[in-house]
């Protein structure tokens, strides 16, 4: 039964045409088109300062969406990212600084805490077998309580030097937040597509049972995925604190829906098993661009929200069909 076939039969080189079926690339294309059209239609939109500002906003969504991408590809969903963003933003000034003048220690403490929260989510999903939606929803409720305890409902402000730098510095004219996003994105893509751990996440999302029977440690993978979700939301939270200078209860709320929307717009299947963070990046930029455009047309908050929802829905109709019975 042995046969031998050529390398090009086994692994045919990709055609240019297949790129146009690539959801990540398409989303990127839409962003570019929207920028060009808006740049001509609206003076000031295409200015370097404005685009830089958009990217800075997209960086926060993009960071939250890292964890969401991992979790969604693994077949779950994380509804606690908004609460984790808030907890991290509010928590930094409360964390012990151990006399560290650079402000690194409290940030690390908060990032560790955020990772721990995510890990607890993973523990509930993997070991207690609580549905991800319930586990992370309960975690969000739980964190809401903790927040009131630690922050007492009032806003906190910070003079943390490290965060101040990340939130405001612009080496070579580009915001430090964008540098951070680029570095973390590269790491994310590497982990997702070039390591066995990344392959396990795709396996888990496509067929958890077959993955377990193929020797994938599904529990450990699940826990790691949710821990990454916590870490990335924590990172976004401290960055947001640095950019805003202060944190308050509710600061992270918009990022829950934004992260899910960015993931889905980027072509990752909400059912799990397929997708890429390379799509989430333009997805996040598309989201802030849409928001910015809606602000530009000077509509009331109501119309803005309607436009935003309709555009997301339209983009989904354009390319977001899922097979119903899998």
């Amino acid at each position: 039964m042995s046969i031998a076939e050529s390398e090009t039969t086994r692994f045919p080189p990709r055609r240019i045409g297949s790129l146009l079926k690539n959801r990540a690339f398409l989303t990127f294309l839409i962003v570019v088109l929207v920028w060009i059209v808006a740049g001509f239609a609206k003076p000031g939109f295409g200015s370097f300062g404005h685009l830089r500002y958009l990217l800075e906003l997209a960086a926060v969504i993009g960071l939250v969406a890292i964890g969401q991408t991992f979790v969604v590809i693994s077949g779950g969903i994380d509804l606690s990212v908004g609460a984790i963003v808030t907890v991290s933003a509010v928590g930094v000034p409360l964390a012990a600084d151990l006399g560290d003048p650079t402000g690194t220690v409290p940030v690390l403490i908060i990032l560790a805490a955020a990772t721990g929260i995510g890990f607890l989510n993973g523990l509930g999903v993997a070991l207690l077998r609580v549905h991800p939606m319930i586990m992370t929803l309960a975690m969000a409720t739980f964190l809401q309580g903790v927040l009131i305890l630690v922050a007492g409902g009032s806003a906190v402000s910070t003079q943390n030097p490290l965060l101040h730098w990340f939130g405001n510095a612009r080496p070579l004219g580009v915001p430090a937040a964008v540098y951070l996003w680029v570095v973390v994105s590269a790491l994310t893509l590497l982990v997702l597509h070039a390591t066995p751990f990344g392959a396990r996440i795709f396996a888990l999302g496509a067929n958890p049972l077959a993955s377990a029977l193929s020797g994938v440690n599904t529990r450990r993978t699940t826990m790691a995925v949710y821990a990454i979700g916590g870490l990335s939301a924590g990172l976004a939270g401290v960055l947001l604190l640095g950019m805003n200078g202060q944190g308050y209860v509710g600061i992270g709320d918009p990022y829950l829906l934004a992260s899910i929307a960015a993931v889905v717009l980027g072509g990752t299947s909400i059912l799990g098993g397929s997708g890429t963070y390379a799509g989430t990046i333009p997805g996040a930029i598309l989201l802030v661009t849409i928001t910015a455009l809606i602000t530009v047309v000077n509509a009331s908050p109501g119309w803005r929200s309607i436009l935003f929802g309709s555009l997301i829905l339209a983009l989904l109709l354009f390319s977001g069909r899922e097979a119903r019975n899998r």
């Binding site: 795709f202 396996a203 049972l209 077959a210 029977l213 020797g215």
Partner: peptide, 29 residues
């Protein structure tokens, strides 16, 4: 279909899956 294969992934990928399960998670493929 339910227990053995990942239908939406490629043939080559499916053949590699046990390796992915065993290898060190953060090594490079």
């Amino acid at each position: 279909k339910r227990e053995g294969l990942h239908l939406i992934h490629t043939i080559a990928w499916n053949m590699m899956l046990p390796q992915f399960g065993r290898a060190r998670g953060l090594s490079l493929r």
